[in-house]
């Protein structure tokens, strides 16, 4: 288990402030956040490479204050691999390996047998990341810290290596914490997600929870929510016999119906693009929210099409399957109906 409470650390003018997170033993945590938010610094603090100025870091239940990195049973993979340039690939992987058989197994699993005799300088960025991963896994640590370890791999190889790492993590009982910019990766890999910004944790929890119920509008924006509106929440009905409260959210020119326990007053409404259904028929669908809008823009991204709508000056972004968009024969200027359920409106 990795647990941090009230952790502060300083690197030059940058500070980590009051960081708290828990990755259970054998769990896979992901840290997401914009560039410069302190993600790498956080990993270095856990690895013992940076001292904490306040708070507590525990690894496997042990307070590691004063425990040097070599005694923490952690391995760290940097985004830029940081292979030892004076050693060959095989020597890099064997550097911290506890036994040669395990190092060979890691070579085989990651498919880097063909690279072993090569000097590090001759490797591509992706190959370097694979070797850095192998070097860390060959150590067989209890805690694996990964700083965007797949960023230089092509998409096909990335998916494969992601699967291999997840497999090693599970089979060897590792506790893993990975930094990523990729929301999909966070959703695919993580049991726990931590959103970091300006050195502070904005929100932590299961990835699905973060995506569906962002704590603030800025968290929603960072997590890629397409429709975020500022407005005022009013209560339409109180909760009766286990039925949720009905709420209204008033934003400029639009009234959204929502349910939940949001407090009346100024707030933000978040609707993910995939929750919005587009229809040509004005009366189509049974969703609580229904507005007429004009198609402004269409952008096809493989299987998905992003549709930008205008509802009396309020922009609405919907994500449809490209097949649906084709069937609807959507085109800029066309009048359509956008529908979404009350429970798709998240108020924060």
């Amino acid at each position: 288990m990795i647990a941090l409470s009230g952790v502060a650390a300083r690197v030059g003018a940058f500070m980590l402030r009051d960081v708290a997170l828990t990755v259970p033993a054998g769990g896979y945590g992901v840290v997401i956040g914009p560039a410069g938010s302190g993600k790498t610094t956080l990993l270095e603090v856990i690895a013992g490479l940076l001292p904490v100025t306040a708070g507590r870091v525990t690894i496997a239940g042990q307070d590691v204050a004063g425990v040097p990195p070599e005694a923490r049973e952690v391995a760290l993979v940097y985004q830029h691999a940081l292979l030892f340039p004076h050693l060959t690939v095989a020597e890099n992987v064997a550097y911290g390996a506890r036994d040669a058989a395990h190092a060979r197994e890691v070579h085989a699993r990651l498919g880097i047998d063909a690279l072993t005799a090569r000097p590090v300088a001759s490797l591509s960025g992706g190959e370097r990341q694979l070797v850095a991963l192998a070097r860390a896994l060959a150590r067989r640590p209890k805690v694996l810290l990964l700083d965007e370890p797949f960023s230089a791999l092509d998409p096909r190889r990335r998916a494969e290596v992601r699967r291999i790492v997840r497999q090693c993590h599970r089979e060897w009982g590792l506790t893993t914490l990975q930094v990523t910019h990729d929301f999909t990766e966070a959703g695919l890999l993580g049991d726990v997600a931590v959103l970091l910004d300006s050195g502070a944790v904005l929100q932590a929890g299961p990835p699905a929870e973060l995506f569906r119920h962002p704590a603030t509008a800025s968290v929603a924006a960072f997590l890629g929510a397409e429709n975020i509106y500022a407005g005022v929440v009013t209560e339409r009905s109180t909760a009766v016999d286990g039925m949720p409260r009905e709420l209204e959210f008033h934003t400029s020119g639009l009234v959204l119906h929502a349910i939940g326990d949001a407090v009346p007053g100024p707030a933000h409404a978040v609707i993910r693009a995939e929750e919005i259904v587009v229809a040509r028929d004005a009366a189509s669908g049974s969703a609580r929210n229904r507005v007429r809008a004009r198609v402004v823009e269409l952008a096809t991204l493989g299987a998905l099409t992003r549709v930008v709508l205008d509802a009396d000056g309020v922009p609405i972004i919907a994500a449809l399957t490209t097949r649906s968009a084709d069937e609807l024969a959507l085109a800029p200027g066309m009048e359509v109906t956008a529908n979404w359920k009350a429970m798709a409106v998240h108020l924060c």
């Binding site: 270095e44 490479l49 391995a75 004076h86 911290g96 860390a136 150590r139």
Partner: peptide, 27 residues
């Protein structure tokens, strides 16, 4: 010599002196 290389060596089990011998000094 990138000090992070020494950091990596430390996480791979080296004491500061050993990291110096195996990484910093050769580089």
């Amino acid at each position: 010599v990138d000090p992070r290389l020494e950091g990596v060596a430390r996480t791979l089990g080296d004491t500061p002196m050993r990291a110096f011998q195996r990484v910093t000094f050769p580089l």
